[in-house]
């Protein structure tokens, strides 16, 4: 009787070990998702881990950001909607921690005093889908200013650039935008830097990290709001068609043959 119990216990123990090994392997399979050395993709690296804000959206639909619409509650649309891959990343601008003041101080990008840093996404413009790129286009590329978490280095981002993907960006030149919104005189707006970079208007940047993959929206933290803008589009091809439809209806499509 005792022998039977021991054998039964062995059988159960074997089964449990087997099950644990199987589930462990399954878990490993889902956690090693990226090709980057520490397992993080480009956009995982750029996800904030040292900041969080609270606020509210000022516009309701993607049409409010596409050129050609009238201002919605003082919110102006982008100057252009562009389509293309992210091909590089470069150091941008930085600001010191500061104390109790209305304005912060610009410091060198690699300064130890920097509390907030930005990097420049280099996007190869394959097509302007709506509006016009007015300035700072070099060899068909524009540079887009976006925030960088402090615990990530530019070298890590460069290493992961192959996972950055491609997408549709609603953009305006940063200096022209600051002039239009009355912010150009502020000390944070360095004219030399701002004239060379673009800003994502409405945080409306929708990307695919592999062909046909589900769209991501790294600058829109509120997923509910992002889905409201996408209106059911889940792929870049679907979203591109929606953008073209609005641009055509407004006479803003750069390439009229798509209308």
């Amino acid at each position: 009787m005792t022998n039977i119990r021991i054998r039964r216990a062995r059988v159960i123990a074997l089964a449990l070990i087997s099950a644990l090994l199987t589930s462990g392997l399954a878990a490993c399979g889902t956690s090693n998702s990226g090709p980057h050395s520490d397992g993080r993709t480009f956009w995982e690296l750029l996800t904030p881990r040292d900041s969080g804000g609270s606020g509210a959206p000022l516009y309701d639909e993607i049409g409010d950001v596409i050129p050609g619409t009238s201002n919605v509650g003082g919110f102006r649309p982008a100057a252009a909607v562009i389509d293309g891959p992210i091909i590089a990343i470069e150091p941008g601008i930085a600001y010191a921690a500061g104390e109790d003041a209305q304005h912060s101080v610009i410091v060198p990008y690699d300064s130890a005093d920097a509390a907030v840093r930005f990097v420049k996404l280099v996007v190869q413009v394959e097509k302007v889908r709506a509006g016009k790129l007015t300035t700072a286009v070099q060899d068909g590329k524009i540079r887009i200013n976006i925030p960088q978490p402090n615990d990530v280095t530019i070298d890590q981002l460069i290493e992961a650039i192959n996972t950055a993907g491609r997408g549709i960006f609603h953009v305006s030149n940063a200096l022209e935008r600051a002039q239009a919104t009355g912010d150009a005189g502020n000390p944070e707006i360095d004219p030399a830097y701002y004239s060379q970079v673009y800003q994502v208007i409405g945080n409306a940047m929708f990307l695919e990290t592999s062909p046909g993959a589900q769209l991501i929206h790294p600058l829109l933290e509120d997923d509910e709001f992002a889905q409201q803008l996408l209106q059911g589009d889940t792929t870049l091809a679907e979203f591109r068609a929606s953008v073209d439809q609005i641009a055509c209806a407004r006479g803003q499509a750069e390439d009229r043959s798509i209308c």
Partner: peptide, 12 residues
């Protein structure tokens, strides 16, 4: 939020 479309109340 005049450019981002997101009126920021506070930021940590």
């Amino acid at each position: 939020g005049s450019s981002t479309g997101w009126n920021l109340y506070a930021y940590a």
